[in-house]
Amino acid sequence: MNSNLGPNSASMREPPVDILDTYRQEAGLSHGELWLRYFEFGGMSTAFELEAYLYGVLAPSTYDHDLIAHALNERFVELGGNHPVAYSEAIRAK
């Protein structure tokens, strides 16, 4: 796993703990549909755990974070948007 810092890390401020859930709401996805999309990508966490990640109660692994970020981003793309949810360094580094 590469530990190079991505270009955005210097400018990153501390986001609210439930930032992922805020994105979920903006994307108009129910928790269930987001979980299903996460599941499609191969996610192994339960819907409970997923919600805990979204609300910032549990910290997702890098892998889980990227799955969630991508599930949300694909939704934003479907809605004609961009990829607002940041991926982990592992994705951004290369």
Binding site: M1, F39, E40, F41, G42, S61, T62, Y63, D66, L67, H70, Y87, A90, I91, K94
Partner: peptide, 29 residues
Amino acid sequence: SRRTITLATGILMEREGVDEEAAFSDLLR
């Protein structure tokens, strides 16, 4: 979808000799 993505990840794992998460990162990139 899950089957497709898992399968592709598996192909990458074998091809790149990496673990599942690294293979998924590759696929995502």
